[in-house]
Design a protein around this nucleic acid. Sequence first.
DNA 1: ACGCCAATAATGTATATACATAAATACGCG
DNA 2: CGCGTATTTATGTATATACATTATTGGCGT
Lengths: 258, 258
Amino acid sequence: MSEAADIEGAADGEAEGKGAPTLNRRIRADIEAKILSGEWGPGHRIPYEHELMAQYGCARMTVNKVVSELAAAGLIERRRRAGSFVAAPRIQSAILQIPDIEAEVTARGEAYRYELLRQERRPAARSVPAEWALAPRGRVLEIECRHMAGSRPFALEHRLINLSAVPEAEAVDFARQAPSSWLVGHVPWTAAEHKIAAVNALPEMAKRLDIPDGSACLELVRRTWRGDENITLVRQTFRGDLFDLVARFTPAQTPNGG
Amino acid sequence: MSEAADIEGAADGEAEGKGAPTLNRRIRADIEAKILSGEWGPGHRIPYEHELMAQYGCARMTVNKVVSELAAAGLIERRRRAGSFVAAPRIQSAILQIPDIEAEVTARGEAYRYELLRQERRPAARSVPAEWALAPRGRVLEIECRHMAGSRPFALEHRLINLSAVPEAEAVDFARQAPSSWLVGHVPWTAAEHKIAAVNALPEMAKRLDIPDGSACLELVRRTWRGDENITLVRQTFRGDLFDLVARFTPAQTPNGG
DNA sequence: ACGCCAATAATGTATATACATAAATACGCG
DNA sequence: CGCGTATTTATGTATATACATTATTGGCGT
């Protein structure tokens, strides 16, 4: 209890309410600060709702909402009758920023250019499992293209679009617009899976990326769904000397940006 | 409005309340379903609180809490006076599962073994920016080790621990216990940053990983903080032929697991 | 001691009400 | 017609209250 009591600025009676933030934000900030500073480590019991209620001189619904939000954010765990406890941060997961290649290139002050290498519309091949999984018994649009940073190749892209799920893609001129930017603007999706690997560039690939045979490349394979339907399957191969991925973990954040 | 009206199962008057889930969960599930199915696409205005309140025959606080939660999760955006709108999923971020090497190895049915290659305690070198940033004017513990899967090398690890932040590390026998597993159990952290790159194995590294010179390897560099203090800096180099990373995106989830 | 049961204490859900805040809309004046 | 102001309206915050749910605690009896 005495630990709980050292939250500052509480119990001001009626308070004078200057330009202060709202009470709920103050309570939340106080608790988050205690947790993020490590003062309340994982497993520490945070004050009971009725204690917070007394400390801040407010109604239980107010603290309840705050603590529920913290629980939803994963910062704490609540157990009936027992209390609320600081959760162990699940450091084994982090938020990965998936690159938008054009933004990535222009961000480093280089001119972005997009080249369509090949485009083909055909039935899905049963012999290729990934392709068949994408569009069983349907037709696919296969696209190969290259992303340039200035005069240097930056990444190769090989993409399959499920035409059953996205028939509009058939009418698009992918010589003018990169498939990723078109898809982002026109096709809503609900789930995605990314596989990240390191590969040695094969001769053909090395030639197109203008690097020595066997150079290490970062390969990003992404599958995208809308509901149960598979929308697209992309393999992007980045020059390993020009690019790497960054992932961050901070306890309070959400992948969608809440 | 007519769009809003097609939420099912609402306005049952008093309802018969069998083994049904609580009202808030029903409302939340209904709205999530509409969004995840794509029926309410990005930008769609969801019913006003007073509309939902009428549809479900409940108080505004009840729907307010539900919709606020959805907003916190990033599924919708709320704008005063205007209403609440389905948010565009920020597909450019995804949740990355950071591997626990031992778990990763044993999950594929191979025997995990850990080898300490080198261990040194010394002042941080000012000439190495990353090292100086870790522990300015302090001492560091430098550890090199190897993770084995059966008889094959799986990954190399080079780690620096900031002894000012974690003095206990000095007394640990890292020949018996891998530094990562010790740190997970003993040092709470609050933030982490991961950089993922593809590199060609240098001769020394190739020898230790038992792969040809120049083989592509996945390199994971992780920095970990507690508050403002940098705890540790690790570089893990995985055999590219044995390992790749997976990241997933689903609108409703949180990195911490709320 | 062991196991069952009742009391207890915490969170979980829900309500009706009130006022604050911010932004879109309507209004009215020059 | 254009611009500033007033109104409207939806969300934001907060309260006091009630009852439900569920682990834990403690007591009781065998």
